[in-house]
Design a protein around this nucleic acid. Structure first.
Lengths: 385, 385
DNA sequence: CGGGGCAATTTGATCGATCAAATTTGCTGT
DNA sequence: ACAGCAAATTTGATCGATCAAATTGCCCCG
C-alpha cells in the first residue's frame, strides 16, 4: 500500500500549481481547456483522489448524511425502512454523498447523537424516519438550524406547512384509492378495509383513500361504510382476528384491502373463500403469497429527499450571490427513479405511474404517488374448506 | 449556530497549550491530575468536541468502517443482514467507530467502491457479508493490504485458515443440532430436514448439524437418513413443495427442522397434522407463526467482528513498540452481547447459552454458538383437516 | 507604445487537530 | 545547594485540501 498521491504531486507532475488542480476538480469552467486536459490526464495516471478529510476540514462540509437505523420494528413491514435506506445510499453515491448510520435508544438519545455527529463535523444533514406529531427531534433540529429532511409528513396541523421542515412522503391515500378502485373494477362491490386504530396520521390517510374510492363508486350509506371497516394493531394475529370480524359483520364481502402486509397476511390465514386481499408495502411476504400490494416507490422518495437537501444547501450557499438558485443539484442527470426499482417481478401489471404529485413544484416537500402491484393469489395447499 | 469551540479555545480558557488539551483527550495518563481536571471542566463548559475531519487528516485514520448494503435478498431472511447491521452500528458507536454504508452492483463494482472509499480516506476497514468461495473481494483486499473482517467463513479448504482473512461466523451446525435434539427430547423419533441443495458451505454445515444429532440418537440407517432429508431453494413455495415430498416419503414423520424461516413458513402451509416445525434466523415471520427458530445472536457476531478489527489495527500500530498487544480494545466494558438482544419475547425457553465456541481464543476468527428459541405453534385458524 | 480590462494561474494563509522535538517544571539524592 | 533526571508541558511543523488575494499573460484600443 504505497503512499497516496496528493494534489501537490499532481500539480508538480502536470507543471501547474495546486490551485489549478483544485480548480480542475471543483470549478472546471475557469480552467483553460488544454490545461484542464493535461491535468486530467495526470490525475488519471497517478490515480489521484482528493483526501476527503482534508477537503472537509477546509470546506467545513462533510458531504455526509446521517440517518438513524431504527430499532427493529417487529412487524413484517420493517423491511420498508431497509429498502429505503438502500435506495437512499445508492442515490446518494450518485450525487457524491455518503451515508453514515447510527443508532439511538429513543428520541432524546437521538438528539444526543445529532450533537455528537454535528460537533464532530461528521455529517451536515440528517434524514429522519418515523417522525410523529410534536417530535422533539425535528424541533431541536429546527431550533439549532441544522439541515434535515423527514421521510413522512409532520401530521400536526401547523407543522405541515412549516417552511423550516422539509419532508417527502408517500401518498398513502392515493395508494389505497388505487387498490380499492382496482377491486371495484374487477367487479367487487363490498370492499372491506382492515386498518389501524384511528389516531395515526399515516393510518387515517390510508383509510381516507379506501373510503373516497368507495364513496366515489356510489357507496354513501354511512352505516354500511362503518361496518365495512375494522381496526387492528399492526400484527399478523390481529389481522387474522380482524378478518374474522369483517367476514362476520359483512355478509356479501367481496374483497379486502389492508393498511399493511402484516394485516394482509393475517387476513389470508382466515380467508377460506379466497377473497382477493390487498396489502401495503409490497414486502417479500406479499410476493411469496401472491398478494397484490401497494409499492411505495422508495427510489423516488430517496431521490426527493436528496434533492430537497441539496437544494437547501445550495440555497444557503447562494444567499447573497445573484446566481439563480433554481438550478439546484447539478448531478441529477440520472434521475427518473429507475435505480431503486425491483425489476423482474413476474406479475407485472401496474396501475398508477409513480410520478410526483401536484406538490412536485413546491420547494419544501414532495408527495410521491405509490403504485399498485397486482398479483394472482396462488398459495399452494391453501384450499377453501 | 454559533462557531464551534476549537482545541485552541479550550487551551486558552484553561490556561494551557493545545497539546495538553489533546493529551487530556488522547493520553490522559501523562497529564497531571489537577491539570487534567481543569481542562476537562473547560471542555465540558465550552461543549468542546474535537473536529473529526481535522483529526482524521492528521492521524490518517478515519475510525470509520465501511459495509456494503446488500441488494435485497428477496427472501424473508433478508432481515438477518439488517439486524446484523443494526447490532454492528450500535456496538461500533460504543467503541468510538462509525459505520458508513455503500452499495454496489456486484463483486467487481464493490471493489471499485473499496478503492473510492480507501483513497478518500473515508474508511479504514471493511466488513463483508455473503462471501463465497473464491470471492474476488477478499482476494483484492488481502492483496492490497487493507483491513477487513467477513461475517461468514470462507468455505474454501485453504482460505479457511488463511491468516490474512479474519472472519466471524455462526455455528449453524450447532444450531441445527440443538434444534434436532430438542425435537428428539420432546419425544419425536423421525425428525425430517428441509435444507438447501448441496454445495453451499452454510447449507451443508447446517445439514451436518441435523444429521449428527440423529446419528447420535441412534439413527444409523443410511437409507433412512437419506429419505428424511429433502432439498429446496430458499423460497416459501419450494419449502411448501418440499414439505409435501417429505410427508410422502416418510410415513411416521414426527417433526421437521429447516435451514431457514422461509422454508419453515412454506412447510407450515402444508402441515395439516401440526407437526412441530423449526426454522432458522428467528425472523418476525417465525415469531408471528409461533415457530421455534434458531437465533443467530447477531450482537455477539458484531462484537466479534469489531474485536477482531480493533485487535488487528492495534497489532499493526504496535508492531515495533514493546507494549503488550494483548489488551486490545479498551472500551469493551459493556460486552456480554446484551445490546443486540431482542427482549421481551414471550416464549422464553432457551437452549444453548450463546457463548463463543472453542475458537474463542484464536485471534483470527470466531465462531458464535446460536441458540434455539422455543415457541408454541399457535396459528389462528390453522386447523388440521 | 503604454495601459485598461479580463481571463488564467499562482502564492500565501488557513481549517483544527496531532506528531516530534524542545523546553520547563518538579523531585531526588548527595 | 545543585547536578541529574524524569515527568509535565509547550513550541513549531505538518497532514491535504480550499479560500482570498496577488500575479501573470493576453488582447485590443487610443
Amino acid at each position: 500500500m504505497k503512499r497516496m498521491a496528493t494534489i501537490s504531486d499532481v500539480a508538480d507532475a502536470a507543471g501547474v500549481s495546486r490551485q489549478t488542480v483544485s480548480n480542475v476538480l471543483n470549478t472546471p469552467t475557469i480552467v483553460r481547456p488544454d490545461t484542464r486536459q493535461r491535468v486530467e490526464e495526470v490525475i488519471a495516471r497517478l490515480a489521484y483522489r482528493p483526501h476527503a478529510s482534508a477537503r472537509r476540514l477546509r470546506t467545513r462540509k462533510s458531504s455526509t448524511i446521517g440517518i438513524r437505523l431504527d430499532p427493529m420494528t417487529d412487524g413484517i413491514s420493517g423491511s420498508v425502512l431497509d429498502r429505503f435506506l438502500h435506495a437512499l445510499t445508492e442515490q446518494a453515491a450518485e450525487r457524491g454523498l455518503r451515508i453514515l448510520i447510527f443508532t439511538a435508544a429513543g428520541p432524546e438519545d437521538e438528539i444526543v447523537q445529532f450533537k455528537r455527529l454535528i460537533d464532530g463535523a461528521d455529517v451536515d444533514a440528517f434524514v429522519l424516519t418515523s417522525t410523529f406529531h410534536g417530535d422533539p427531534r425535528t424541533e431541536w433540529l429546527i431550533e439549532n438550524g441544522h439541515s434535515f429532511v423527514t421521510f413522512g409528513r409532520p401530521w400536526g396541523i401547523d407543522d405541515m406547512s412549516d417552511e423550516n421542515h422539509l419532508w417527502v412522503d408517500v401518498d398513502g391515500s392515493a395508494g389505497l384509492r388505487a387498490a380499492t378502485e382496482h377491486a371495484l373494477a374487477a367487479g367487487a362491490r363490498r370492499v372491506g378495509y382492515i386498518g389501524w386504530p384511528v389516531g395515526s396520521g399515516t393510518g387515517d390517510d390510508r383509510r381516507r383513500g379506501w373510503q373516497s374510492a368507495l364513496v366515489a363508486s356510489g357507496v354513501t350509506d354511512v352505516a354500511l361504510l362503518e361496518s365495512l371497516q375494522v381496526a387492528a394493531n399492526d400484527t399478523v394475529v390481529e389481522g387474522g382476528a380482524a378478518m374474522l370480524r369483517l367476514r362476520e359483520q359483512v355478509p356479501g364481502l367481496d374483497a379486502v384491502v389492508c393498511a399493511s402486509d402484516s394485516l394482509a397476511l393475517g387476513a389470508m390465514m382466515n380467508n377460506p373463500h379466497a377473497l382477493p386481499v390487498t396489502g401495503y408495502d409490497n414486502t417479500p411476504v406479499a410476493a411469496a403469497l401472491g398478494l397484490s400490494s401497494v409499492e411505495q416507490c422508495l427510489g423516488d422518495v430517496a431521490a426527493g429527499v436528496l434533492e430537497l437537501l441539496m437544494a437547501e444547501s445550495a440555497a444557503g450557499a447562494a444567499a447573497g450571490s445573484g446566481a439563480g438558485a433554481g438550478s439546484g443539484g447539478a448531478a441529477g442527470e440520472s434521475s427518473g427513479g429507475a435505480a431503486g426499482e425491483r425489476s423482474g417481478d413476474a406479475a407485472g401489471e401496474v396501475a398508477g405511474d409513480g410520478v410526483m404529485g401536484p406538490q412536485a413544484d413546491d420547494p419544501r416537500h414532495r408527495l410521491v404517488i405509490p403504485r399498485l402491484v397486482v398479483r394472482e393469489m396462488v398459495v399452494p395447499g391453501w384450499s377453501p374448506e
